[in-house]
Simulated assay, not measured.
Amino acid sequence: MTDQKTQPDTPYRLHESLGYHLSLAARLQERRLDEMLRTVGLNRTTWCILLAVANEGLVQPSDIAGFVGIDRTATSRALRGMEAAGLLARQSGKEDKRTRRIVLTEKGRQAVIKASPFARENGRLLVALLEDGEVEELKRMLRVLIDGTPAALPAL
């Protein structure tokens, strides 16, 4: 791949850009996982929220949003839909009745059990494409990109 940053006078080539390759790889694995999750009535967002509550013990919408990596508005919208579907419930806090906690319902627990093999299979398919040691190296490199990327875009 040509380093487009050091050659400003050449045309920008989409298929040579790192961002394009990252996006395409992510979309391909996301699409495969979404297709599998759809068979149990979930999508990637609802799946990630279920994992936040079921496996990480997160109960506050803001904590769930941070874990999943989506904004609070999208989280609230997803939580409302998941509550209507019977996957989650909201409970008042024990000390402060004004606080609301997100809890997993039995239907939500069953969804996690049913969907977990799909997520494992999707991960297995990705890992199978890489050589020994490449998975950890790829995770390391992606962490460098994630940690080094500013959250806000600069004004144009």
Rank of each mutant, 00 (worst) to 15 (best):
K94Q: 14
V59I: 12
R109D: 12
K139H: 01
R120F: 09
A119G: 04
M36A: 14
V135T: 05
I146V: 11
E106D: 12
H15C: 06
R38F: 10
I113Q: 11
A89Y: 00
A151F: 02
S23Q: 08
V53N: 07
G69I: 04
E136F: 05
D96Q: 12
D63W: 04
W47C: 03
I64V: 15
L50F: 01
T10I: 08
V68D: 00
K94S: 13
D63Y: 07
D63H: 14
S17F: 03
D3S: 09
Q60Y: 13
R32Y: 07
L33Q: 02
K107V: 11
R143E: 09
N122F: 00
T39K: 11
E134Q: 15
Q91Y: 11
D3A: 02
K94W: 12
G41Q: 05
T73N: 12
L87N: 04
E134A: 10
E121G: 02
A151G: 00
V103S: 07
R32C: 02
D147K: 06
D132P: 02
I70E: 03
L142S: 07
M82G: 09
L126P: 01
L88C: 07
S62Q: 08
L129T: 04
M82D: 05
A52C: 07
I146D: 03
L50K: 01
L42T: 05
F118W: 03
T75S: 06
S92N: 14
D96W: 09
P61M: 09
A111C: 07
E131T: 03
R72S: 13
D96G: 04
G69Q: 08
V59T: 15
L142E: 06
L79V: 12
D71T: 07
V127G: 00
Y12I: 15
N55E: 15
P11W: 12
M141F: 03
I49T: 03
V127L: 11
E56Y: 13
S92E: 12
G148P: 02
Q60I: 10
M1N: 02
E83F: 05
D34Y: 02
R80M: 13
T73Y: 12
R100Q: 15
M1R: 05
L145R: 08
R90E: 04
L51N: 07
L18I: 12
S76L: 12
R31W: 01
R13E: 15
T149N: 08
Q60W: 11
D71V: 00
H21M: 06
A89W: 00
D9I: 05
N55P: 00
L24M: 08
F67Q: 07
E106S: 09
R80W: 08
D9M: 08
L58E: 03
L28G: 00
L50W: 01
G123F: 10
R32V: 06
G41N: 06
I113H: 09
L50V: 05
L125I: 08
D132V: 08
Q29T: 08
L88A: 09
T73I: 14
E134C: 02
H21A: 12
